[in-house]
């Protein structure tokens, strides 16, 4: 099966269109038995083309992978046409708890409660139910409490490529230090 670069690009585009879940670069590279770099270059080219051409779709990079998606400005049309439910609304305390988990994972409930100063049992249950967090193990201390971590669904919901895309905690700290100095 001979294929040139254009073919490869088109095939990758097919994959990114058909998939339900973001596809990681290394999976595509392994499939074609090529290095990751050329695959990455092709995907970024595709991404660029989607951006340049006035189309309804774009290429998103979330949860350590790539996928074709609708542009946000047309989202409500898609939602209405397919009668999709509105995406889950998360309350402030829920996002707060989620951010504590995201930055400190793996983390046990007591540690989250120590930071938030209030009980988080119900919030954790809610987050687990929505697949935004998962149990990643048990801490080897008294009572062997459960350890929590975030999921790929969390990354997707917040449009994050990976955990390193979270706002940097040092940056936030700096802002606070500046406030502290002037206060």
């Amino acid at each position: 099966m001979r294929m040139d670069k254009q073919d490869l690009k088109n095939i990758i585009e097919c994959f990114l269109f058909v998939t339900n879940e973001p596809i990681p670069i290394d999976r595509i590279a392994r499939f074609f038995n090529v290095k990751e770099k050329p695959v990455k270059d092709i995907i970024y080219e595709l991404k660029e083309e989607y951006n340049e051409n006035n189309r309804g779709l774009l290429l998103i990079e979330v949860a350590n992978g790539f996928q074709v998606a609708t542009k946000p400005q047309y989202g409500k049309w898609v939602r209405n046409f397919f009668r999709l439910p509105k995406k889950i609304k998360l309350t402030k305390p829920t996002i707060e708890t989620l951010s504590i988990i995201a930055f400190n994972q793996p983390i046990v409930k007591a540690e989250i409660e120590d930071i938030r100063g209030v009980e988080v049992r119900m919030i954790l249950a809610n987050l687990l139910e929505h697949d935004l967090i998962k149990i990643v193990g048990r801490k080897e201390t008294i009572g062997r409490p459960l350890l929590y971590g975030t999921t790929d669904k969390f990354l997707k919901a917040f449009g994050l490529k990976d955990l390193s895309m979270l706002p940097k905690i040092e940056e936030i700290e700096e802002i606070f230090d500046d406030f502290g100095a002037t206060a």
């Binding site: 339900n20 998606a69 542009k71 402030k92 449009g159 936030i172």
Partner: peptide
């Protein structure tokens, strides 16, 4: 503070649909 940023992220991604 981080929560505020994440809320914005969530909102930006609200209307992006995949297959």
């Amino acid at each position: 503070e981080i929560t505020k940023i994440l809320e914005q992220y969530k909102e930006d991604n609200e209307e992006i649909y995949t297959k």
